[in-house]
Structures are given as structure tokens and as C-alpha cells.
């Protein structure tokens, strides 16, 4: 190995274990969000690797696009799953681990072999030659000349996916059906509708239980102060006990 500087070697030996740990952690973590965070660590290390190997643009793009945008969207969805939704240890598909390991190793072998075959006997121009006009400029020239078709096809694919997602999530409304802010406001003040905020459960109640209704000025219970999902039941003695709010 010639031409490896000390800084490069130090960066590699610091980050290579970290990225492997991240990958392992991604697989092993029980919690989905933790899993995503381990993957972020791996992607971040990969980004730094690209930068160390004199590809600053691809490294920054890796960090912005993969860790900044894609993993963030993953996290966005995972967060909604809830804090305690950890993976169950029970296998739902019999023998899926063995199959997964075999297929994973097979895919890795296939990709490695394919890359090996493709790069066999390739004329190497060297980094100085490739980065002669600057890393970003060299990359831009290649993308917009030799590979412009592949680049455009990829972008068309991504846009198609985005438009498809929008169509799936889109709710078609006719012009008349759309309810604007002004219409909502008018609806709020229609007769029969109470426009103010409802009293919170137990706020004006005499006990600490949320099942105790608030009292109206004439002493009768206010039915609106109790959430409709609470079942009707007899209050216990502790719940009935007075909060001593009379100010005696």
C-alpha cells in the first residue's frame, strides 16, 4: 500500500470499526429508532470515507442526501410507531434468519464478483488526472456529457416515484367541497354550536377524578365536561371525596 498518508490511515482505522459497529447495531437493535440511528452512524462514516479518498463532493452529498434527508424520513415514520414498540423476538416466518443470511451472503458475493469483473483490466487514469479541473467540475462534466442519459433517466424515475406518492396521498375535492377558513369560522358560530373551548375534565370538579363532571352555576353536573370515551360508572369513595375548594 503506497501513498497512504498518516491522516488517511488514522481516519480509516477510527471510522472503519465504527461503521461496522453501526451496521451490526442496525441489525441487532430491538428498537426501530435505535436501529435507524445505528444506520445513520454507518452512513456518516461512509461519507467521511469518500472525503478521505479525495471525493469531497460525493462525501458531502452522501451526508446531505442519505443521512440528512432519507434517514430523516425513515425516522419520521418510525417515530410515529411509538416509544415502546420494540421488535418482538418471535419469528413469524419459520427459518427466515437462515434464508436471510444465505441470501445476504449470496447477494454480497454477487455484487463483489460483478464489481471485480467489471473493473478487471480497466485503464486507470489516476486521481490527479480525474480531479484536474477540480473535483466538482470534473464530476459535473462527466454527468452532463457522457452519462447525461443515465442521469436524466434516473431523475425521471425519481420524479415518477414522487408524483406517484403524491397521487396516492392526494384527496380529490371539487371546488365547491373545499371548506375554507371563513366557512369554518361561520360554522363555528352557528346556532346550536358552542363556540368556546370546552371545560377540561375535572377542571372545575370537586374531586381529583377525571370522571367527576364539572358543576354548572346551579349545581347540576355539566355533561360536556366529561370525555365521551369515559364509561358511565359509580364513583368510588376516594373519587367522591371533596377537594376542599370551597375556601373555608
Amino acid at each position: 500500500m503506497s501513498g497512504v498518508e498518516t491522516g488517511e490511515a488514522v481516519a480509516f482505522f477510527l471510522l472503519a470499526p465504527l461503521s461496522v459497529i453501526g451496521a451490526l447495531g442496525m441489525v441487532m437493535a430491538r428498537n426501530a429508532v435505535h436501529s435507524a440511528l445505528w444506520l445513520v452512524l454507518t452512513m456518516l462514516s461512509l461519507g467521511v470515507f469518500y472525503i478521505v479518498q479525495a471525493g469531497p463532493f460525493i462525501g458531502m452529498v452522501q451526508i446531505i442526501v442519505y443521512t440528512g434527508a432519507i434517514m430523516m424520513l425513515f425516522l419520521f415514520v418510525l417515530m410515529l410507531v411509538g416509544r415502546d414498540a420494540s421488535d418482538s423476538v418471535i419469528e413469524t416466518l419459520r427459518g427466515q434468519r437462515v434464508v436471510a443470511i444465505v441470501l445476504g451472503v449470496g447477494l454480497a458475493g454477487l455484487l463483489g464478483l460483478g464489481t471485480y469483473r467489471a473493473t478487471q483490466g480497466l485503464a486507470v487514469t489516476g486521481l490527479d488526472e480525474a480531479n484536474k479541473a477540480g473535483n466538482v467540475q470534473g464530476l459535473a462534466r462527466l454527468i452532463f456529457t457522457n452519462y447525461v442519459f443515465a442521469f436524466e433517466v434516473t431523475s425521471a424515475l425519481l420524479i415518477t416515484a414522487a408524483v406517484g406518492a403524491m397521487i396516492l396521498a392526494h384527496v380529490e375535492r371539487r371546488r365547491g367541497e373545499r371548506v375554507g377558513q371563513a366557512a369554518k369560522m361561520r360554522e363555528r358560530f352557528l346556532p346550536g354550536n358552542y363556540p368556546g373551548p370546552k371545560a377540561g375534565p375535572g377542571v372545575y370538579a370537586t374531586s381529583t377524578s377525571v370522571a367527576t363532571p364539572a358543576k354548572l352555576p346551579d349545581g347540576s353536573p355539566a355533561p360536556r365536561s366529561i370525555s365521551p370515551i369515559l364509561p358511565t360508572r359509580e364513583l368510588t369513595a376516594a373519587e367522591k371525596a371533596n377537594k376542599h375548594t370551597e375556601g373555608r
Partner: peptide
């Protein structure tokens, strides 16, 4: 660095993690 401005975008992208997490 040749991509200095992208560094700011990358760090602000990572900074969102702090808030989300």
C-alpha cells in the same frame, strides 16, 4: 474545502437530528 458551502448544508441537515430525537 472545494465543497465548503455544502458542509454547512450537511451540518444543518444533521442538526435536525438533535431536534427530532
Amino acid at each position: 474545502i472545494p465543497v465548503a458551502v455544502l458542509l454547512v448544508l450537511a451540518t444543518s441537515g444533521l442538526g435536525i437530528y438533535g431536534i427530532v430525537l
